[in-house]
Simulated assay, not measured.
Amino acid sequence: MMSIAAFFLLIAKLHPKCLKSSLKLFGLSILITLVSCSDSGFITPPTQPLGNVLNTRSSEQHPRFSYEGRYLVFASDRQGKRSVWLYDQINGGLLPLPGLNQLGSVQDQPDISADGRYIVYVSEQEGKQDIFVYDRQTSRADNITKNILGEVRHPSISGNGRFVAFESNRSGQWDIIIYDRGLNAPLSLPSQLNN
């Protein structure tokens, strides 16, 4: 099998006028190879077995960032069950979510509003899968799909926290449902970052 360098030298021998172009292509191919091998841009903290960290030896899934990238909400199997976690990139640790993760039930598929105030997620805490909206300021979770028959999944919350979209099969096929939390719902805005 011919190496890349041998290939470019063969082209230069067969077509001397192409020598300069061949050398440029060879240099470019080396540069692309070197750049693609670097870890430039990755800021992920290392995996650790336990603790107030982003990655453990458990399965971590469904990451979603707040608007400015400070907060990262995700689902994890740590502590023996599927739960929702919130990571603060500025402080480099997990933030408490009192009242969100319920014992004996699964919390999964989270999304987060622009400033990190609201977290929407799927939970089975009331006997069936439902969509909940959790307010970090009040530590309260509201079930917005308790009256929907059928399954629900993959919730997404608008940046301002007013609208929630999710999938539901209540009509016999998977459809997109949009829920309006109302004009009186306190908004989540990037300029009002929570601590």
Rank of each mutant, 00 (worst) to 15 (best):
Ser171Gln: 12
Arg181Trp: 03
Leu149Asn: 13
His62Tyr: 14
Gly92Tyr: 05
Thr33Cys: 15
Gln129Gly: 14
Leu183Lys: 12
Val53Pro: 00
Ser83Gly: 15
Asn143Arg: 09
Gln79Met: 13
Ser21Gln: 11
Lys17Asn: 08
Pro96Tyr: 03
Phe74Ser: 06
Leu193Tyr: 08
Gln107Tyr: 05
Lys13Gln: 14
Ala5Gly: 05
Arg140Pro: 00
Gly27His: 09
Tyr71Ala: 02
Gln61Pro: 00
Lys20Phe: 12
Ser139Gln: 11
Leu72Phe: 03
Leu19Tyr: 06
Ser76Met: 03
Leu94Gln: 12
Ser58Asn: 06
Ile144Gln: 06
Lys146Asn: 12
Asp175Gly: 06
Leu19Thr: 14
Lys81Asn: 15
Val152Pro: 02
Pro49Val: 07
Gln89His: 13
Leu28Gly: 13
Ser76Thr: 10
Ile131Val: 15
Arg140Tyr: 14
Gly80His: 05
Gly69Ser: 09
Ile32Ser: 14
Asn184Ala: 14
Trp174Pro: 07
Gln109Val: 04
Leu28Ala: 15
Val122Cys: 15
Gly69Pro: 09
Asp175Glu: 15
Leu149Met: 10
Val122Asp: 08
Leu95Arg: 12
Leu100Met: 12
Val122His: 07
Ile119Tyr: 00
Gly159Trp: 06
Pro16Ser: 08
Ser38Trp: 09
Ser22Val: 00
Val164Asn: 05
Asn147Asp: 14
Met2Gly: 11
Tyr179Leu: 02
Ser158Trp: 01
Leu97Ala: 09
Ser59Ala: 10
Pro155Lys: 02
Pro63Thr: 04
Leu19Gly: 02
Ser66Met: 11
Arg64Tyr: 10
Pro46Leu: 05
Tyr67Ala: 14
Arg57Cys: 06
Arg153Gly: 05
Glu124His: 10
Pro190Ser: 11
Pro96Lys: 07
His62Ser: 13
Leu100Lys: 03
Glu68Ile: 08
Gln173Trp: 06
Gln79Cys: 04
Leu95His: 02
Glu167Leu: 15
Tyr134Trp: 04
Leu19Ser: 08
Met2Phe: 13
Cys37Ala: 15
Ile176Glu: 04
Gln102Lys: 15
Gly127His: 03
Ser113Cys: 02
Pro98Met: 03
Glu60Met: 00
Ala114Val: 06
Gly92Ala: 00
Ser38Phe: 03
